[in-house]
Amino acid sequence: MADLAAGARGYGLIVAMWVRTTMTYRMSFAMTALGNLLMTAADFAAIAIMFSHTDVLGGFTFAEVGLLYGTTSTSLGLADLLLGNLDRIGGRIRDGTMDTLLVRPVPVFAQIAADRFALRRIGRVLQGLIVLVWSLTALEGVAWTPVSVLLVPVMVLSGAAIFGAVFACGAAFQFWATDAAEVQNSFTYGGNTLTQYPPTIFSKELVRGVTFVVPLAFVNWLPALHILGRDDPLGLPGWVDFASPLVAAACCALAGLAWRTGLRGYRSTGS
């Protein structure tokens, strides 16, 4: 617990410094943030083009796909903004600068995650939020209840935590394979692309895999299906629609364990 507080404090200090530095070049920041927003908007453009040819995809309307897209993209955007720089760890191990982090009084995880904090990545978050808000206004025939309204922010935050855990696991994996940073892209950016689309278009095995192995289905599919009043293709019991926060917590615990194991390995072998 003390470690967590020290980590959060150190993270905050380093992030604050980078944000200050970024803000000395406001114009440049605005341009790159906008560029990030447009970049991530490209895959939404592809979805829009798809829906110019059809009214439904896998039985889902454009607005329904928009809800899936908006939630998962906002979640990934948040995780990417806060922890995206963790994938630099392989480079730091290879060039030996990892050691300089270990002699500072702040947990290494916080130092790497905060190093060169890129505020411009807020562009992805904004783009996700814009699509999310649009989809919420465009959805038709959804019976909103207090629970389903609350489910939207819970889903976004749980999703961010799950993606964050994947970033952390990917970084921990680099303790063993220092130049395999790209593998985690399959689970983060790949997972994001996957969950932008309805689960009904994928094969059952794939859906089962991202429910039970890498629990990406909990990022948005299961809670969003509840909001939309649809059954999930695996026919899971109803309570799993609300299980995202628990799954997120379990993922984070697992990621913490992986990170500790990786760091311990590094400190015993020095490589």
Binding site: T21, D95, D99, R104
Partner: peptide, 23 residues
Amino acid sequence: ERTRLARRIGVVFGQRTTLWWDL
């Protein structure tokens, strides 16, 4: 107790800097 020790020692690596490169 690596982080507790870190407050009480200073380390200088000749070949690599502990400073932030771009700042």
